[in-house]
């Protein structure tokens, strides 16, 4: 099972919204075996997920998490879906 996590500063609002969008996008992309969560920057650790989704303003402080998917705009659903599709295809998951 692949784990996805959205990360933002306080882990309350924007990462939660991104989490719901990731969930929707993965369903549409046809991935079935996955889990999504969200977290604050301080609480996130590399072992928490296989893929971390952040806005571009948090790219540097989140770099230690490893497998980052960086979004130009965290409110752009299409961008998120395109990036996820690209990553999943690269890793042979879909």
């Amino acid at each position: 099972m692949k784990k996805f996590a959205a990360v933002c500063g306080s882990g309350l609002g924007s990462s939660f919204m991104v989490e719901m969008n990731i969930d929707k996008a993965l369903k549409e992309l046809g991935l079935s075996d996955y889990s999504v969560s969200h977290s604050d920057l301080g609480g996130a650790s590399p072992s928490m997920a296989d893929y971390f989704v952040v806005g571009r303003d948090l790219e540097k402080p989140a770099a230690h998490l490893g497998n980052l998917i960086v979004l130009n705009s965290i409110i752009d659903y299409q961008e998120l879906k395109d990036r996820l599709e690209e990553v999943l295809k690269n890793d042979g998951l879909i």
Binding site: C8, G9, L12, G13, S14, F16, M17, G55, R56, D57, L71, N72, S73, I74, I75
Partner: peptide
Amino acid sequence: IPALDCPIVYPYAPNAV
């Protein structure tokens, strides 16, 4: 129209943040 948390505007102007 969904009203969302404030960090959604941060990527548009990181210096202003």
